[in-house]
Design a protein around this nucleic acid. Structure first.
Length: 454
RNA sequence: GCGGGCGUCGUAUAAUGGCUAAUAUGCCUGCCUUCCAAGCAAGCGAUGCGAGUUCGAUUCUCGCCGCCCGCACCA
C-alpha cells in the first residue's frame, strides 16, 4: 500500500476546520505571522505546557518557575545585545536582487565594520568602498543603500509625548525575564547552585518573512529553562539536560525517527556549545524545535555591567563569590505544537476502501479526553442516562465532549480528527446493567465496561 | 524585502463582463437511525480590501493586504 505523504497544507486545513488554529485577525483579512488558537488548540497547547512544566519543575527538586512581565526596562535589551546586535545591515544588488551583509562584505575587503555601528556610519564606510565590493552572484557593483533590519518590536509604553525618546521593546526572547529575576530567586527561595529557573513566556520578532504556518511567526511563545552551575562545571549538567529534553519528546509520543540532534556549526562568541533538537516537519523537513545552549557566564555578566547590580552568587559553604554559568533550553511552543500535531496526523485505509484521518495524540495531550454519546438521540431514556455519564466524566477528566450529532459513525470520525482517545456510548444495555461501550480511537475496537469503572 | 505564482462559503473544488455565483463536505435545526461519515427536510455560509475602466466588475487594470514557491534572513 502506497502511503501519501502528509503535507503542511493537510495540517493547516485540519487545524482550521477542527478548531485548533485560526489565522490571526481573520475577519480583517489576516495579519501576517499571527495565529490564534481555537477551542481544541488551546487545550492541546495547555496540555503540552502542563507536561513540560511537570517534567522540568515538579519531577525535579532543583528547578523553580517564574512568570515575568512582558514589558521590561529598555536597558534589558541593550544589555542582551538585541538593540545593537539583533539587526543586520543589509544592502541589495539592484541588478539581481541578491542581498549582502554589509558588515561582512566590508570585513572581507579589510575595512573594520560591525553590526553594532550606526546606519550612517555603515553607509559612509560602504560608500567609500563601493568600488571594491561586487555582487557575489552577478558581479555588478550597483547596490542600494544600507538598511538595518532590527527584529525587535518597539512600543510606546509610558511615552505620552509620541517623541519616541525612550523606546520600550517587546521581548525578542522570553528568557531575559529569568536573568532579571536570578537575584530575586536566590534571595527569597531555598535554592542553591546548581539549580534552574523555568518560564513559559511570549516573545515578539519583526521577522522579515514569517512563513510556514506556526513555524515562524511574529509573536511566539517560548518555554525556557536556565540552569545555573559553578563556572566550568557545565559539562555533566549539559549532558544530563540534553538527555532529559530528548526523553521528554519521546514521552509525548513523538516518533523517534522524526527527531534528531544537530550541533551548531558556528557558535556565538560567548557560547561553549549549542545543540538543537530538530523535528521532521511535513513539507519542511528537519528543522529546529528547541535549542540547548551552553552559554557560560555571558548573560549575567552583561546584566551586571548594565544594571550595576552585583549578580554574583555566594557559595553558602566556602563563601566564594562567582558569576554562575548558564545552561539554557529554549523551545518554541508553536514549533512543538506543530510537531505534535504533525506527528499525530495519520491517514488510515479502512477495509471498506475509505480512509479516515486520525490524530494519534497521546491521551495526556488530547484536547478532548472522552466523547459521550447516546446511541440514539430520539430515545429520551438513553439521552438522560448519557447526560449522567457525561457529567460524571466531566467532573473527573475535565474536557469531555457531548456529541449526539448525526449517527454514531459520524461521531467517531469527528472525534478521530480531534484526537479524542475514547468514545463512550450509552445504549439499551446500559439501562439494564450499567455498562457502556468504550471505543478506542486507534484500534476502533469496542469494549464493554461498567460505568463505575470508567 | 526581491522575483514568480495565487486569492470564490469553515474545508475542498466549479463557473461567469449582465438572471438568485454552483457542487460536495462541514456547521446548525427537525425527523429518522440498536455501533464506524446511511437517509429525508429546512437553515447558515464565499468572490480579501480599496480605487480605476465600463451602462454594468467576482471576472479587465492599478494599489494595498494575505497565502504559496524560490532568494535572502533566522541573534
Amino acid at each position: 500500500m502506497e502511503e501519501k505523504r502528509t503535507t503542511l497544507e493537510d495540517i493547516v486545513s485540519l487545524a482550521k476546520r477542527r478548531g485548533f488554529v485560526y489565522p490571526g485577525s481573520d475577519i480583517y483579512g489576516w495579519e501576517s505571522g499571527l495565529y490564534d488558537f481555537g477551542p481544541n488548540g488551546v487545550e492541546l497547547l495547555n496540555n503540552i505546557k502542563k507536561s513540560w512544566w511537570k517534567a522540568n519543575i515538579y519531577d525535579r527538586d532543583d528547578y523553580v518557575g517564574i512568570d515575568s512581565a512582558i514589558f521590561k526596562h529598555p536597558k534589558v535589551w541593550e544589555a542582551s545585545g538585541h538593540v545593537g546586535g539583533f539587526s543586520d545591515p543589509l544592502s541589495e544588488c539592484k541588478v539581481c536582487h541578491t542581498r549582502i551583509r554589509v558588515d561582512k562584505e566590508l570585513g572581507a575587503v579589510g575595512v573594520t565594520a560591525d553590526e553594532k555601528m550606526s546606519e550612517e556610519e555603515l553607509n559612509r564606510l560602504f560608500d567609500e568602498n563601493r568600488d571594491k565590493i561586487k555582487c557575489p552572484k552577478c558581479g555588478n557593483k550597483d547596490f542600494s543603500d544600507v538598511k538595518p533590519f532590527n527584529l525587535l518590536v518597539k512600543s510606546n509604553l509610558g511615552d505620552f509625548t509620541g517623541e519616541d525618546k525612550r523606546p520600550v521593546y517587546l521581548p525578542g526572547e522570553a528568557c531575559q525575564g529569568i536573568y532579571l529575576n536570578f537575584k530575586n530567586v536566590v534571595d527569597t527561595m531555598p535554592v542553591k547552585i546548581p539549580f534552574g529557573i523555568a518560564q513559559i513566556g511570549k516573545a515578539f520578532r519583526n521577522e522579515i518573512s514569517p512563513r510556514n504556518f506556526l513555524f515562524r511567526t511574529r509573536e511566539l511563545e517560548q518555554a525556557d529553562t536556565q540552569y545555573f552551575v559553578r563556572p566550568n562545571e557545565n559539562k555533566e549538567a549539559y549532558e544530563r539536560i540534553k538527555s532529559d529534553r530528548w526523553n521528554w519528546y519521546l514521552s509525548l509520543g513523538i516518533k523517534e525517527e522524526n527527531l534528531r540532534w544537530k550541533q551548531h556549526d558556528n557558535l556565538v562568541f560567548y557560547a561553549s556549545d549549542a545543540w538543537d533538537i530538530e523535528y521532521n516537519y511535513p513539507s519542511l523537513g528537519f528543522d529546529e524545535v528547541e535549542g540547548v545552549h551552553d552559554r557560560t557566564d555571558y548573560d549575567l555578566t552583561q546584566h551586571m555591567k548594565f544594571s550595576g547590580v552585583d549578580l554574583r552568587y555566594t557559595d553558602p559553604v566556602t563563601r566564594e563569590k562567582y558569576i554562575p554559568w548558564i545552561l539554557e533550553t529554549s523551545m518554541g511552543m508553536g514549533r512543538i505544537f506543530l510537531a505534535v500535531l504533525s506527528d499525530a496526523y495519520t491517514v488510515e485505509e479502512l477495509p471498506n476502501g475509505e480512509s479516515r484521518v486520525v490524530l494519534k495524540l497521546s491521551p495526556e495531550l488530547a484536547p478532548v479526553k472522552y466523547a459521550v454519546s447516546p446511541l440514539l438521540k430520539n430515545k429520551p431514556e438513553l439521552v438522560e442516562k448519557a447526560r449522567e455519564v457525561y457529567q460524571i466524566l466531566k467532573k473527573k477528566h475535565g474536557n469531555v465532549m457531548w456529541d449526539d450529532n448525526g449517527n454514531i459513525g459520524k461521531r467517531y470520525r469527528r472525534q478521530d480528527e480531534i484526537g479524542t482517545p475514547y468514545c463512550v456510548v450509552i445504549d439499551f444495555d446500559t439501562l439494564e446493567d450499567g455498562t457502556v461501550t468504550i471505543r478506542d480511537r486507534d484500534t476502533t475496537e469496542q469494549t464493554r465496561v461498567a460505568i463505575s469503572s470508567l
